[in-house]
Design a protein around this nucleic acid. Structure first.
Lengths: 127, 127
DNA sequence: CAGAGTGACTTGCAATTTGAAAGTGAGTCG
DNA sequence: CGACTCACTTTCAAATTGCAAGTCACTCTG
């Protein structure tokens, strides 16, 4: 426990961020927590992209380990859990926005507006 | 050539970007091409993080397929190749900067300044 | 109170991807 | 010729992913 559980590949901030968030699912979980009001395991699993339960479970654990989200029981009997972004987790918003902007322009994906909560545009095809 | 070879998981721009760039290596290749003057296979492979040759080869192919980089022979006899970012590839700079900024603040990685070409800071340890 | 249902996971296992190392081929140099 | 360089490709074991099914605690319905 003395050393950080994460041994980074290098001192490059980009490499470190990719070590930790660089896969196809993690940032989608963050997206759902950040913008789409999904907070339970079930809600997160039911997202459009359909993450498998084992992967969601593992990703949530990792995000907790990083201090980006917290888990709390919001009711007993039966116990139900809610996952929430910490301030650290919320600090990923500009990263998400930048990635979304790029994907919108270059891959024709939708553009979500956090202000209105609406997807503003779903552009056409490739560049 | 009419349809992209990529079938995206969803229409979400973030999901699409992750479909295409969401792994531990692709953006590091882009980083090296963008900022660190690495343009040959060898130079890219020799980076601090030591990407395996097969993965580098595959990533370069994918980036070419996406139109983010080009490959040209810059000499014959012996033929040697140079990889270069296209305008589309260069448009990833703000994404990279945002990721770097986050990794600097939250994971203690270095902060590279494209203006001066220097790494401005290499902060301490974890959050 | 038995049986069905729900939420939150975990387990098992096949398929895919990664990582390390060795191999290939064109060409140069001594 | 033999050694060396660059740019890959091949091989193969290990790790990760994806899908389905199973578990556990608890509630709700007849």
């Amino acid at each position: 426990m003395t050393q950080p559980q994460t041994a980074f590949r290098s001192r490059c901030s980009i490499a470190r961020t990719l070590d930790v968030l660089g896969d196809k699912w993690t940032l989608l979980v963050v997206r759902d927590l950040m913008w789409h009001g999904k907070h339970t395991f079930q809600e997160l699993q039911a997202s459009e992209e359909h993450i498998a339960a084992n992967l969601l479970s593992e990703r949530l654990k990792r995000l907790m380990g990083l201090g980006l989200i917290t888990k709390e029981a919001y009711q007993d009997r039966p116990v139900r859990y809610r996952y929430t972004l910490t301030d650290q987790g919320r600090s990923l918003e500009p990263v998400l926005l930048q990635i979304m902007g790029w994907g919108h322009v270059h891959l024709g994906g939708g553009l979500y507006d956090p202000q209105t909560g609406k997807t503003v545009a779903e552009a056409g095809q490739l560049p």
